[in-house]
């Protein structure tokens, strides 16, 4: 029987209340959202907060809506809600692709989008998806709110730029015309963390790639992104050869490590192959050739 260590518990009823509690307890506290990473880690004593600040009552943070040319996702949105959201799927196929392969349906009922990002697991899927879409995160703190790009959000494994007295409240994704996106993941079994995974977004003008976003997870990519491969794609024609070369560049610039999920050279191979394939998916979707 695994049991977490002693912990105090506070329930926040609003963002302001959560911020007051965070200011009071500082780094001794951890925010409890879905808890589906935090509670297992507490059982293993990998984290041992003195206080949990439960934000599950802040239902104001559960939403997915279109505001101007942005999709806005509240931080407490459950994975299942994102997977069921037609507006999210219509504009960002990558989000539905990714959500389908995150854990399992029961975990997705409770696990949250913001919680996944703040947990900052180096194998987390949405971090790669949001990096590919070049989203931004809204962080509230005692002095108001700030907006941070998805590629500056993670400070390292299990570390983000969200300070001890701050709370992630929203993720924003820009909607730009001519785009298509997708996500592909290889895992050892259903519901597992990825051995490797890639997300891609492309924007086309005719056959020319005007912009591209590539997200990689579990393979040691800096900020979950493949910036060099994106630079290579910009301005080129979307041919299979071009996409395959982008895959190679992505693989050359990531730093996978060998672990129980596979050896580093296999993961590098996956980074190449998955990037190539998912770019193909994104291009096909941008051309309207694929649902």
């Amino acid at each position: 029987m695994q049991v977490p260590a002693q912990v105090e518990y506070e329930r926040a009823g609003s963002v302001e209340h959560a911020l007051t509690l965070l200011a009071r307890y500082g780094p001794a506290a951890r925010v409890l959202a879905g808890g589906h990473s935090l509670i297992p880690m507490m059982k293993l004593r990998l984290v041992q907060p003195e206080v949990l600040i439960d934000i599950n009552g802040i239902t104001d943070l559960c939403y997915i809506n279109l505001t101007g040319a942005q999709l806005r996702i509240g931080a407490l949105t459950r994975h299942a809600q994102l997977l069921e959201s037609s507006v999210a799927g219509e504009h960002f196929a990558i989000l539905h692709d990714a959500e389908r392969v995150i854990a399992d349906p029961i975990v997705r009922n409770w696990g949250t989008v913001g919680g996944s990002l703040c947990q900052a697991d180096p194998s987390e899927d949405l971090s790669a998806a949001f990096a590919a879409m070049k989203g931004t995160m809204i962080i509230h703190g005692p002095d108001g709110s700030r907006e941070v790009s998805a590629r500056e959000f993670h400070a390292g494994p299990y570390e983000t730029v969200v300070g001890p007295s701050e709370l992630l409240t929203e993720i924003r994704l820009p909607i730009r015309p001519g785009g298509g996106s997708g996500y592909r993941k290889v895992s050892r079994r259903a519901g597992d963390w990825p051995v490797g995974a890639a997300g891609a977004a492309v924007w086309l003008d005719g056959d020319v790639i005007t912009d591209a976003g590539i997200g990689l997870t579990a393979v040691g990519a800096t900020h979950f992104a493949a910036a060099e491969a994106e630079d290579f794609l910009r301005g080129r024609t979307a041919t299979p050869q071009t996409l395959a070369r982008a895959g190679e560049i992505a693989a050359e610039n990531c730093r996978p490590v060998s672990d129980q999920r596979g050896p580093a050279d296999y993961k590098r191979h996956l980074a190449c192959e998955l990037t190539t394939r998912v770019l193909g998916v994104a291009v096909a979707r941008a051309r309207g050739l694929m649902a």
């Binding site: 029987m1 695994q2 518990y9 409890l32 589906h36 029961i106 409770w110 519901g191």
Partner: peptide, 26 residues
């Protein structure tokens, strides 16, 4: 005990949850 197997699944307000990964206070 690690949120994998689902043997502990119960319904909370009609939603399935793995009860080894939720706190009773919740």
């Amino acid at each position: 005990d690690t949120t994998n197997c689902g043997a502990c699944t119960v319904l909370v307000d009609g939603q399935a949850v793995k009860s080894c990964t939720m706190l009773a206070v919740q």
